[in-house]
């Protein structure tokens, strides 16, 4: 076991980990931050996406020891300081961008990363960027709509073509 130290959602944390301890396991089991979900074992589904130093990564495919000293943001760190839903979170609720909620943390984290990179994405940009986040409930319609809405774009009357 070795000690790992990082900043999670603005708070300095540390814990004892094995070499093989994944960041997702450190967050869920070590810190009790169970909002980060694990939905597959092949690094495809994206339910585990968190931000490491501002960049989205799949926390099930990163060792906790490999992000020693980094700043990590999880879904639990996305609310406004007053505890209300943050901009992307609120857009997901407003536009019914989630159903069972399991893929949602990863979706929100990826969506937030997209908007940081590309504040006014097109529909195609959003769909392409979310390639690594699988949702089984929504057919993606309202997720894409929510992300476009979070970017401040008008989403009334969106349908194919």
């Amino acid at each position: 076991m070795t000690k790992v130290t990082m900043t999670v959602n603005g708070r300095a944390v540390s814990g004892e980990v094995e070499g093989r301890t994944l960041l997702s396991a450190f967050l869920r089991e070590g810190l009790g931050l169970t909002g980060t979900h694990v939905g597959c074992d092949t690094s495809q589904c994206g339910a585990c996406v968190v931000h490491v130093d501002g960049q989205p990564v799949k926390s099930c495919t990163v060792f906790a020891s490999d992000v020693e000293g980094a700043s990590v943001t999880t879904i639990e760190g996305m609310a406004n300081p007053d505890g209300t839903l943050g901009r992307v979170q609120q857009a997901f609720q407003d536009h019914h961008g989630l159903q069972c909620g399991f893929c949602t943390p990863g979706m929100v984290m990826s969506a937030a990363a997209l908007l940081a990179e590309n504040p006014k994405p097109t529909e195609a940009d959003v769909r392409h960027y979310l390639e690594g986040n699988i949702c089984r409930c929504t057919g993606y319609h309202n997720i894409v709509k929510a992300v476009l809405a979070a970017s401040g774009q008008d989403v009334s009357g969106l349908a194919a073509e």
Partner: peptide
């Protein structure tokens, strides 16, 4: 390659 999260690692 892959997806954005994969490309960051």
């Amino acid at each position: 390659i892959g997806d954005p999260a994969v490309r960051n690692r």
